[in-house]
Simulated assay, not measured.
Amino acid sequence: MNHRTTLMLAMGLGGALVAGMALGHGNVTPQKVDTRALEPLGEEWVEENPYRAPYDKHELAVEVGKSAYSENCARCHGLEAVSGGIAPDLRELESTPYGDEWFVERVVNGAGQMPKMADYLSQEALWAIRTYVESLETE
């Protein structure tokens, strides 16, 4: 292979990689989340994660959140919240009132390419997602 062919091949592969990364943030239809087994929270956003332990249905909230995360968040934030670098690693978010405030700000108002997820998912679903992510350990 000559130098020109190698250069053109490298440019083609690079272009395909960039296009694939761009498509990773393409239009995604949010999937419904069944939160009927969790405590209803109403329309007004609560300030702190209500499903964090010692919530009596904490483990159920983790399971609901895991499913909801897989369907609605993993495409950009990575499987099991292990970011591939496109979006923030959500496991790094503090499990504190400050972290909760940051979370609410982003899901209600959107951030960067992330849509306003509160327009599509209930706060019960979003707090369950937060509960699931908090259950994961960072390496």
Rank of each mutant, 00 (worst) to 15 (best):
Q113D: 15
A125W: 00
E137G: 04
S135D: 03
A16W: 13
C76K: 07
V28I: 15
G15M: 10
T131K: 02
G65I: 00
V133E: 05
T131G: 03
A128G: 09
M11V: 15
S122R: 14
E94R: 09
W127C: 01
G78C: 06
M8K: 09
E39Q: 10
L121T: 02
R106D: 02
Y120K: 05
L90W: 08
H25V: 00
L23A: 14
A74R: 01
A19V: 09
R91C: 06
M21E: 10
A87W: 05
E92T: 13
P40R: 11
A22L: 13
E47L: 15
R106C: 00
G26Y: 05
Y120C: 00
G78H: 05
K32A: 15
E47A: 15
T29H: 13
H77G: 00
A74S: 07
V108S: 12
P115H: 10
T35K: 03
A61N: 02
Y55Q: 07
L9K: 14
N109H: 13
V18H: 09
G26K: 07
A81D: 01
E39N: 06
N109P: 01
A74M: 01
A68P: 02
L38Y: 05
A81E: 01
A19M: 11
E80H: 03
C73A: 08
A125V: 04
T5V: 12
A87M: 14
A118F: 08
C73N: 02
M114E: 09
M21I: 13
E94F: 10
A22W: 10
G42L: 15
Y51R: 12
V104H: 03
A16L: 14
V18Y: 06
V46R: 11
A61Q: 05
G20L: 04
E92P: 01
L126I: 08
I129Q: 01
G14I: 09
G20N: 09
R75N: 13
I129P: 00
N2M: 04
Y51D: 12
A74W: 00
A61R: 05
P30K: 12
D119R: 14
T131S: 03
L121H: 10
L79C: 03
K32G: 08
Q113T: 15
D56H: 14
A10I: 15
E48T: 15
G85P: 08
M1I: 02
Q31G: 03
F103W: 11
A68V: 04
G20M: 04
V104G: 00
N49F: 03
G84Y: 09
P54C: 14
L13N: 01
G78N: 03
A10E: 13
Y98R: 14
T138L: 13
L9Y: 08
V33T: 12
A118R: 15
E48I: 14
R130H: 06
A128M: 11
R75H: 12
A125F: 03
N49C: 12
A19S: 10
L136Q: 08
V46A: 04
N72I: 01
